[in-house]
Design a protein around this nucleic acid. Structure first.
Lengths: 213, 213
DNA sequence: ACAGAACCGTACCGTACGGTACTGAGAGGC
DNA sequence: GCCTCTCAGTACCGTACGGTACGGTTCTGT
């Protein structure tokens, strides 16, 4: 029974991929047990055996997708100011790219749609397994920058959320609402650059002041 | 046939209120035609006569709620810097209060859940009828501030979206995902104050520079 | 080679929903 | 008093879905 680190067989991963594909193209209503079984060429009985029920399947889809998110790791080496800024821009671009991805949007729509139902913790799952990774990577990056004297802040979490707000603004919600025409990659790059500039205006340390804390 | 400005009778408004109440307490799945009819003590036949079908009912719910949003109106009089700042803070507080309201959250969840379905424009409707009003009021406020020399920017829309990002950050999405514990009014006030401070750091004009454009 | 598990495909069941049709009760006009 | 219009309440229909059961096939370990 060749299993992966998450306790799922490759076959089950393939089924989840099919389910995600259905979710992206047709929304939550398209993720029916019969539909997933047909698309993935498996039986409904197997679905219930593997994932318990439909909610279990949805949760597994979220966990499966979240496991793909890569994160920034702090290697501890000092950063030049230009490098640090480039890392921040890269993070902002990654963030925008992830949030505007088809799968991410579909999963967020799914979790938000289920948020009203009591006893459904898909939203919590999505935040903890998906967002948390991104947040922690970014927090590590900010801490690196602060230790190297490029930026200054009192509260790490506050600073990170400010950066997030400057980068994302209302883009995420509008994309979730179905607005089109704001997902062009070049726009995302411009957005990332400007947001980082603004962040430096708020939290940056002037070059000449670096020796005078 | 006493009608309102939107072409709906008081009876129909009452029905929409009942439907909104159902939506808030039970989510989209709770807004069934039979459920609304029972809660509002009307017949399903009347629902279909008034709103066409279920989608028409949902759209009417959004339009009904959006019609309640009040907006800032520019009276053209010059603003003192302190007044302007107070207006910005009040706007930020209003924005956070609206976005964190039960009905707003439920309607946004509804529209987002329907966004995947092709041919459903509930999201567009929500943005145009709800958000647009708020946006235009805030834009007028910013323009007032700029004309009075309190702030400076190249692009009004860019500046407004920056303010929005600083105020809301990821609060809206997290609340939509069902996260609790971030809707306390005093937190919202603190958030509004800090966001406006940050906005002035980015776009504010120093007092002494006001005479030197 | 054989037993047993895993699994696919399908058929089936109960339920819930969207939408339609019918009945009967008030409400106003003449 | 009668007619007509509106609407509440209910019964009804077709469909679609979640979940279960079963027969037949492939894979696996010994």
């Amino acid at each position: 029974m060749s299993e992966n680190t998450d306790g799922l067989t490759p076959r089950q991963h393939a089924v989840l991929e099919c389910a995600l594909s259905l979710l992206v193209t047709g929304g939550e209503r398209a993720v029916t047990t019969a539909g997933v079984a047909r698309a993935a060429s498996c039986s409904k009985e197997s679905l219930y055996k593997w994932f318990g029920d439909r909610d279990g399947l949805l949760a597994a889809m979220i966990a499966h997708q979240a496991s793909k998110v890569r994160t920034y790791s702090d290697d501890g080496r000092p950063l030049e100011r230009g490098q640090f800024r480039a890392h921040l821009v890269a993070f902002a671009q990654d963030l925008l790219r992830v949030l505007s991805g088809d799968v991410s949007l579909a999963l967020n729509r799914l979790a938000i749609g289920q948020a009203s139902r009591e006893g459904s913790r898909l939203g919590q799952l999505l935040v903890e397994q998906g967002r948390r990774r991104i947040d922690q990577g970014a927090a590590a990056l900010l801490e690196s920058g602060r230790r190297c004297g490029h930026i200054v802040y009192d509260d790490l979490d506050e600073a990170y959320r400010t950066l997030y707000g400057l980068v994302v603004r209302d883009l995420h919600v509008r994309m979730l609402l179905g607005e089109e025409g704001m997902r062009r990659p070049e726009d995302l790059s411009v957005r990332a650059e400007r947001a980082v500039d603004q962040f430096f205006t708020l939290h940056g340390v002037r070059e000449k002041e670096r020796a005078h804390p």
